[in-house]
Design a protein around this nucleic acid. Structure first.
Lengths: 131, 131, 131
DNA sequence: GGCGTTCTAGAATATTCGTGG
DNA sequence: ACCACGAATATTCTAGAACGC
């Protein structure tokens, strides 16, 4: 697993996509883990089922941690937003443990769009940006 | 449960409508619960019949509580007003348990108007509003 | 389960301790759930084992959610700090899923100290604090 | 210097309780 | 007695900050 930002993808071409995004893409695509993380039906978002198992079983295979919270922090750093379903949120919880995230440029079948997903920079006054 | 403003509705398009309003809309529209909550005849208000059953059976499917009072508090937070019936006041109470609420922008057949319904903010001097 | 701040505790005396703190105390004390949440050996902190099971099995019995993240947010709101263990960080994962939190006034055998734990208020200029 | 991981906080809505017109 | 609202806590989603690499 490549950790560098300037890496060779599995397809063999050079890219400037951060490791998190290529790993996320691989994760969502991988049919072996579709029961824990997979594309939504229309391919415009992805679902994580059973956060606990996902965190403990899948995350450490790609990242240096096994915490859902760290995974979510990265998603937000890259501009992903949680998709809220009104089905959730009741006192009664018939639904399975289902978390959904979406990004304008994270679309099934359009891997090249990953290059448009940018990591957010700190909001602290960036002196170096003036020069 | 995030009841955030940036959510995808069940129709799959992005909206800025708070969860309470989309849930309320769904609730009133749902034919399954028309005996407990439904549109008025002309579609300019909605009725709740049998507060007790509505609170215990319907509310917990969408909200994290089963109290009519909490539901009403939210309605007021969003500017809904109770429609007062003349029939009140008699010692006898022949009428069925019927509560009616109304809002200028809550109209049957005009879901897009939900975006005009604004939640009230605290009255405690909002510093950020000055900038 | 009492949710009010001004409630009668199980011991029967009145208190001004927020529901979160009394629930947390009950949770940690309860021997039934010691395998998921319990006091540390010296009683100055508490441990949560197996976040996933704790969140899904224990939290909803006391709170209106089943998310570890919401539980942690409340802990931080009340000034609890995570106790960091040296053992963390290895790629190998010999240790069990163990999360530890501590607060100066959360001490086994001293329930009355809960009254000194204060919830943090918003940082947005609190006008009423000037009067 | 940008990226990754962790812990804590910000901000908006949600739920509860009480009070005043 | 009723209805609208203030205020405090609770829940959720996102961001700040510190640190290491």
């Amino acid at each position: 697993m490549q950790d560098s930002a300037n890496s060779l993808t599995m397809d063999g071409y050079s890219s400037n996509v951060p490791a998190f995004l290529t790993k996320l893409w691989t994760l969502v695509e991988d049919p072996e883990t579709n029961h824990l993380i997979c594309w939504s039906t229309n391919g415009t978002s992805f679902h994580v089922f059973d956060q606990g198992r996902f965190a403990k079983e899948v995350l450490p295979k790609y990242f240096k941690h096994n915490n859902m919270a760290s995974f979510v922090r990265q998603l937000n750093m890259y501009g992903f937003r949680k998709v809220v379903n009104i089905e959730q949120g009741g006192l009664v919880k018939p639904e399975r443990d289902d978390t959904e995230f979406q990004h304008l440029y994270f679309l099934q079948g359009h891997e090249h769009l990953l290059e448009h997903i940018k990591r957010k920079v700190g909001t602290e006054f960036q002196l170096h940006l003036l020069f």
